[in-house]
C-alpha cells in the first residue's frame, strides 16, 4: 500500500512538473520532450487506476504519433518562438482570472458532493466487473462483435480523410522536367529545329525559347 502511495506521488509530481516545464521552457524542442514525459507519467497513473488499455493507447497514440509529429513540426518549421513569446505576460491578468474561476468551480463541485463518483446504478448494459475481466479484454469482447460496424466505419472515415487530403493537395508540377521517352523518340527535325533569317544589326527580332 505504501509503495502505491509513493508511486502515486512520484507520478503525480512528475506529471504536474513536466506540464509546467512544457510551457516554461525556452526551447520548443524541450517543450515537446517534456510533453512526452508528462504523457508517460499520466500513463503510469492510468495503470495504477487499473486502466491499462488507456495507458497503452496514451503511449502508442500520443507519444508514438502525436508528440513525434509535434517534434517534427517544431524542428522543421522556422518559427521564431522567442517572438511569439514576447508579450506573453500581458495576458497574465485575464488568464489568471479564468484559471481562478475554473479552480473555484472545481473546488465547489467536489466540495458540494453533488457528483457520485460511483457509476450510476441505472446502467442498462453494465460493464463487466473490473476484478474478473481486464479492460483490454472487455473492450475486445465488444469492439469486434457488437461494435464491428463502428470499428469499420471509423476506418472508412480515415480512408476518406486520407484520399481527400491527397486529392485536394496533389498537383501536377510543371516546374520539374520528367523524362517522357515516347515524346523524345517521336521528335523529328522539322518540329524541333526552326530556321529564321535575321537582319544583321536588327534589334529585338531574336527570341530565345
Amino acid at each position: 500500500m505504501i509503495i502505491q502511495t509513493i508511486m502515486f506521488y512520484v507520478l503525480a509530481v512528475g506529471t504536474v512538473g513536466a506540464g509546467v516545464m512544457v510551457i516554461a521552457s525556452r526551447n520548443p524542442v524541450h517543450s515537446v520532450l517534456f510533453l512526452i514525459l508528462a504523457f508517460f507519467n499520466s500513463a503510469g497513473l492510468f495503470v495504477m487506476m487499473g486502466a491499462e488499455f488507456l495507458a497503452m493507447i496514451l503511449i502508442i497514440v500520443y507519444v508514438g504519433a502525436v508528440a513525434v509529429l509535434f517534434l517534427f513540426v517544431v524542428m522543421m518549421l522556422d518559427i521564431n518562438f522567442a517572438e511569439l513569446r514576447a508579450g506573453f505576460l500581458q495576458y497574465l491578468p485575464i488568464g489568471g482570472v479564468i484559471g481562478i474561476i475554473l479552480l473555484a468551480e472545481l473546488v465547489m463541485v467536489f466540495a458540494s458532493g453533488a457528483i457520485e463518483i460511483e457509476v450510476p446504478t441505472n446502467v442498462a448494459s453494465p460493464t463487466p466487473p473490473p476484478d474478473e475481466v481486464t479492460n483490454t479484454q472487455a473492450l475486445g469482447d465488444v469492439l469486434y462483435t457488437r461494435y464491428a460496424y463502428l470499428f469499420q466505419g471509423a476506418g472508412f472515415i480515415l480512408l476518406i480523410a486520407m484520399v481527400g487530403a491527397i486529392v485536394l493537395t496533389h498537383r501536377r508540377r510543371t516546374d520539374v522536367r520528367r523524362q517522357r521517352i515516347a515524346d523524345q523518340v517521336a521528335r523529328d527535325p522539322k518540329a524541333a529545329v526552326r530556321l529564321t533569317d535575321i537582319e544583321p544589326g536588327a534589334e529585338g527580332t531574336w527570341k530565345s525559347d
Binding site: Y149, L150, G153, A154, F156, I157, I160, A161, V163, G164, V167, L168
Partner: peptide, 13 residues
Amino acid sequence: YISLELLSFGLYV
C-alpha cells in the same frame, strides 16, 4: 454518430 461523420467527411472533401 459514426455514420454522420462518414457522411460529413465525404462532403467536406
